Amino acid sequence: MSVSSLRRFRAAVATAAVLTAALGVGTSAAHADTAPTTPTQTRLQEPRDLLRALEFDSLAADGWTVTDDEEETDSAKETEVVELVAETTPAPPAVTPEELARIVPGIPAEKVEQFIAPLNEAMTRNGIDNPVRQAAFIAQLAVESDSFRTFEEYASGRAYEGRADLGNTHPGDGERYKGRGAIQITGRHNYEKVSEHTGVDFVAHPELLAAPENAFTTAAWYWTSRNLNEVADTAGIVRVSELVNGGHHALGRRIDDFKRGLDVLLQP
Rank of each mutant, 00 (worst) to 15 (best):
P206C: 03
F151G: 05
I107S: 08
N214D: 11
Q114I: 10
K111S: 14
F202T: 09
F148N: 01
L228N: 07
F115W: 13
R239A: 12
R226L: 09
N229V: 00
T218G: 00
H189P: 03
K111E: 12
A220C: 00
V231L: 02
K111Q: 15
L119H: 05
E207G: 10
Y177P: 08
A232C: 10
A164N: 12
K111L: 00
G181S: 01
R176G: 09
G174I: 01
W223T: 10
T218N: 08
A220G: 05
V200T: 12
N229M: 04
A220V: 06
A155Y: 11
I237T: 07
L141K: 01
G181E: 05
I183Q: 00
E213F: 04
K178C: 08
A122W: 01
T198Y: 12
R125N: 14
Y191K: 07
W223R: 04
A210I: 00
Q140F: 07
D165T: 02
V240A: 05
I107F: 00
V203Q: 05
Y177F: 15
P171W: 00
E113R: 13
G187S: 01
E144I: 11
G167A: 05
L208C: 08
E161A: 07
H170C: 04
A139K: 08
E196Q: 08
Y177I: 02
E153C: 01
A159D: 14
W221Y: 14
